[in-house]
Design a protein around this nucleic acid. Structure first.
Lengths: 200, 200
DNA sequence: CCAAATTTGTAGTGCTCGCTACAAATGTGG
DNA sequence: CCACATTTGTAGCGAGCACTACAAATTTGG
């Protein structure tokens, strides 16, 4: 099997370091020098292991998604649309101000607008953000079938709304808002969903 | 007065072109070559008139703010907090999908995360976003005094909330959401404010 | 202990970046 | 018509970018 000199770094650990650099500086703002520095490797090792700066970003995004999957499953398993939204937004307020990570969300901080050479990075990030919205939409569709959301409710619109609030909170976090500020936003935002819930 | 060769471009017109480039590509993604191209001038003219790339951005931001001031005044002049929020969010849905501009909001697209050399650009943008939030907060404080918002309402939290929704809508717009999608978000978002309004 | 395979560290590559030196062009005041 | 002041266009500066050629180092298979 393993013929040749073995690599002396762990791929996933290095990826975590790269993730943090992209998170803090964005795709374009992150330089290969910063990345290799944080990852503790040299450029040839980076390119041998990941292929290119953009491929490294995608690998980091995959890992970012993976990291949140368990939490996301728990959020979606809440019994009602209101409770799903509450867990979601409260969790976001907490996670986006977790001091062990850069503030905000990598899928937003990574880059909304890029130079002509990296034009597809914003698309890539948008596509990944859309997945969360889609998961919420499916969950809200179920909530409507279960009679938990009002018949007049529009699951797609509600999912878009929650997704927009999450993104807004993410931007606020990245510009220094603390956990209390984000929690306040979450509390207000949940009221809009309560409004469309069938009271018990 | 005018001694020396006169410049043969209009400062504000050039600024509008620069604004569009920053809006579409972000601060870091916009190159001097793209900017001078769009502005129809050469680099020395740009630097003589504006000083640096970052100073050009600030001048463009000033103009961006100026451009929205009349609309903002009209929004804030609405009679109730609910109506202010409605005009605000509906207007945002419209403006951020106006095909005569790049989608989204320059204060977000300009850059949330930057490389180490442009670290203060995100701060500059955040400070300008905060001004809108502050205007909303003052308006909501007045609404509370006027008995239009419930005694239990927190004007600062509501302003933060509306500001977050605006930012979220802006990101959605920049990644291709159409006017209808944004309007749906606005409609849902307004319900959270209605919830804290004193019914008539 | 040698040959093949792979990674590592050094030291660059060509390119594009923001920015500017310089001289020609174009205006005003005397 | 002549200084003088300012802008313009050309051409290119040093720096930093993503990326890589290359040789030394380190492993396994025979």
């Amino acid at each position: 099997m393993g013929v040749g000199r073995p690599r002396n770094f762990d791929r996933d650990t290095a990826l975590d370091q790269a993730m943090e650099v992209f998170w803090r500086h964005g795709y374009e703002g992150a330089t290969i020098a910063q990345l290799t520095d944080a990852m503790g490797i040299n450029p040839p090792s980076l390119y041998a292991a990941f292929g290119s700066k953009e491929a490294l970003l995608k690998a980091a995004l995959d890992r970012y998604t993976l990291r949140g999957e368990a939490w996301m499953a728990e959020v979606l398993s809440a019994p009602t649309a209101r409770e799903v939204t509450s867990r979601m937004l409260m969790g976001v307020a907490e996670k986006q101000t977790d001091p062990s990570n850069p503030p905000g969300c990598l899928l937003v901080q990574g880059g909304l607008a890029c130079g002509s050479g990296s034009a597809n990075v914003p698309f890539e990030l948008a596509a990944r953000r859309a997945k969360t919205e889609e998961q919420l939409r499916h969950r809200f569709e179920r909530a409507k079938e279960e009679g938990d959301l009002a018949d007049s409710a529009d699951p797609a619109a509600l999912a878009r709304y929650v997704s927009a609030v999450i993104t807004g909170m993410s931007v606020m976090a990245s510009s220094g808002a603390d956990r209390e500020a984000l929690t306040q936003v979450a509390v207000v935002a949940i009221k809009a969903i309560e409004d469309q819930s069938v009271r018990s």
